[in-house]
Design a protein around this nucleic acid. Sequence first.
DNA 1: GTGAAAGCGCTAACAC
DNA 2: GTGTTAGCGCTTTCAC
Lengths: 347, 347
Amino acid sequence: MARLEDIARACGVSKATASLALNGKPGVSAETRRLVLEVAKKLNYRPHAPARSLVLHRTDTLGVIVPDLSSPFYAEVVRGVEDEAVQQGFFLVLTTTLGNPEREEFCLRLLRERRADGILFVTPRGNEHLIREIHAEGFPVVVVDREIQCEDGVVEVIVDNYGGAVQAMHHLLACGYRRIGFINGIPEIQASQERLRAYRDVLSSQGIRVRRSWVEVGWFLPEGGYQAMTRLLRVSPRLDAVFVACDWMALGAMRAIREKGLRIPEDIAVVGFDDVPLAAQTDPPLTTVRQPMVEMGRMGVRLLVQLIRKEQISQKKVLLPTELVVRGTTAHVGSPESPCFRQGNHG
Amino acid sequence: MARLEDIARACGVSKATASLALNGKPGVSAETRRLVLEVAKKLNYRPHAPARSLVLHRTDTLGVIVPDLSSPFYAEVVRGVEDEAVQQGFFLVLTTTLGNPEREEFCLRLLRERRADGILFVTPRGNEHLIREIHAEGFPVVVVDREIQCEDGVVEVIVDNYGGAVQAMHHLLACGYRRIGFINGIPEIQASQERLRAYRDVLSSQGIRVRRSWVEVGWFLPEGGYQAMTRLLRVSPRLDAVFVACDWMALGAMRAIREKGLRIPEDIAVVGFDDVPLAAQTDPPLTTVRQPMVEMGRMGVRLLVQLIRKEQISQKKVLLPTELVVRGTTAHVGSPESPCFRQGNHG
DNA sequence: GTGAAAGCGCTAACAC
DNA sequence: GTGTTAGCGCTTTCAC
């Protein structure tokens, strides 16, 4: 592959001049510049990024740490991340932790070694010390989807989990459901805790006693949702609705309900969380709380890039809204054929 | 961040010695090595990867080009890619084309500039000239999920699309279905063409005339599957089964069937393709043809790494098998309550 | 407007 | 065993 020196020689100029010309900097005659560009094009010249990084002290690379890509939720977030990163002229080095703290540490070490210009954490739990450490070292850091205790300030993008869950619960109550179960994700995760808290608060505020047996855990996986729902139906057969902490689990929960021969929403209503693309495709289409997943990714990158460019950051903590999307898995009790109201698919 | 020079100075040795010690090379006394390692650890030293790349002429980085991450199929493939890459000690620079040829070209240019050690294409169509060009330039290249005309040999990982589709069709016929529709993905894609060809061949071999109106296109998207199925039901209302070229589309097709008030599989059977994780979670669970998605990604990386290391490559074209997975969306015609046979979820 | 030279952080020949 | 030196490909003073 052609090097700067090759094209400089081919043009009969010095490397310095060629460099200036190629980078669009002033101090080169129009004629020389034209020539250099032409030759560079002909030789299919591309600057050697590592060499450039060495002198420029930047890599135009963003390190992203995400639990996994099989989950449709993270897939959407990463979609936003990728798209915004490309737009901002950054490259993505993607790493997945698979929920394994050692692997997370390993990935972070490599990202550090690569001298990523900034690091985006999309991990909902664990390894806080790593985040603080890398931040303390001077790396720009943005955390998406969780709050982190860090006085000097890692920037955060969070979502109104509590508010979204409150909307979901109010919707269920408005439809007439009273005996509402809850399938939690991973209990240790903040987002899960917020949703559970909202579930409890809303029921309590209506004078409904929340029983222990109404709450199960499904680990954010379809199989977990299936098992949690199966337990719920066995232990609390009189539930008339269930609020599931993510759509991906709701899929499994719906399967469990079906296997018991029950109808959705006539026998039992379901509300999910996230509004991943598949939520609009279930049968019936899933009523859920929309998180702006792509926007979360985008916003994370936008903030990280501001940090990298040392631009003024408007806010160190960005709260994105959630929104109830009513589809077919909830309906007025007593009039199963006419759901309260419907809304078209989002996309 | 500490540089090699810093730790060398701190140890009172030269950079060369420090380098040898850190890289586990011979020619350093045990005592010195211990000291260097200790100081490096204390200073949290990590070598500067770009500087290293500059002299080593390698980046330990794999460039991956994939259409998008929203599709559960690609998400799974990338999962395999990521996992194997980490195991092999490589980093992933991930780029998505969004089906946009210019963006693909842009991504490839950047990957080239980054001096990725090798490039993995998971794009099912387009820009063949780019692949040939980058390969001609000396970059190791592996293509997953398509065959490319290239005598000198890009390495390919392909899947038995034709065989898998034949299995699916034979299964439908064995269940007693005769009027079988087909929803294709993107017609330009090789994999699609193979599946369509199998569909036609099997029906023809049974003396069944394939009507034009039995075949629709759904672009590998749920919404496309929904619309294709809707058209199919309108134009060919007497179909008793439909073979959908991917699970993701099948989801939309199933929704369309449900909306018409038809039952699956009693009124119309459905077979998908891929066996993405959600296939086991639909209602009923989807009968489909399993592609070894994770393995495709893994194998692609394994071959690419062999190419990079200039090891002997066993085969320039690896064909991975497909496998029918019978679940709940197909059943014997006439005995809807007892599907021919079932198989547990894959995971 | 252009060229010579230094240096980014590292590895590898080669002396000693 | 260890240190000295050159050089990977680029950008950037600073002379001219």
